[in-house]
Write a protein that binds this DNA or RNA. Structure first.
Lengths: 98, 98
DNA sequence: GACACATTTGCACAAATATGCAAATATAAG
DNA sequence: CTTATATTTGCATATTTGTGCAAATGTGTC
């Protein structure tokens, strides 16, 4: 496994491994439609600018998808992508190479 | 989901979300028997004391199991625990609550 | 264009983190 | 007990990261 692959996976996990960001993810987990940033602010008690930055981090890590809707931007979980990544890691770790 | 549960999961992911620590995990992935710290030093080019600290972090996060063997300490992946945690998260994220 | 609202960015700062080195500790072997 | 080896800890430090506030930007509405 190349260093770059390891780094990519580490970055993906790091994006999820912070309290406020994971709270945002769980919050979006329960939403059927994309949500805008203002709405997502409710779930963590930090400044809107901080939420904006966390959302950006999650988009860059491939956890969220972003859409422009007029003056708002809406966010939704990339459910299949995140689940796939986590399951691949789980499989890799559980498999004891003989 | 309680704040404490979110924090625990975030801490677990954060432990995995660092290059050298994830390298250690992948390295142990390919080992059938527990390895000592000196041996594990090979896989990341940092001081032994740094490896020691990373291993401690991973043990505290429940990723690794530690055993004392004479003057060495050996480490092994808690494969089932890690896989279970990752799969639970994957399931939660993939499931769109109707 | 003027205004309102949503979001991002620049800046400053505190806290957390990763790191290396040297010293301390633990323990096996002689 | 002394020595050698494995690991941890204390300390200093550079870097990264999370945060808030104010200003800037983008965009719809009047």
């Amino acid at each position: 496994m190349s260093d770059i692959q390891v780094q990519d996976t580490a970055d993906f996990l790091k994006a999820l491994g912070e309290f406020n960001r994971l709270s945002l993810v769980y919050r979006l987990c329960d939403c059927q439609s994309p949500q805008n940033a203002m709405c997502l602010c409710d779930c963590c008690s930090v400044d809107a600018s901080v939420v904006s930055r966390h959302l950006k981090t999650l988009v860059q890590a491939g956890v969220l998808k972003q859409e422009k809707k007029g003056r708002e931007r809406t966010y939704s979980l990339d459910r299949s992508r995140v689940a796939k990544e986590l399951r691949e890691l789980a499989d890799r770790i559980e498999t004891n190479i003989e």
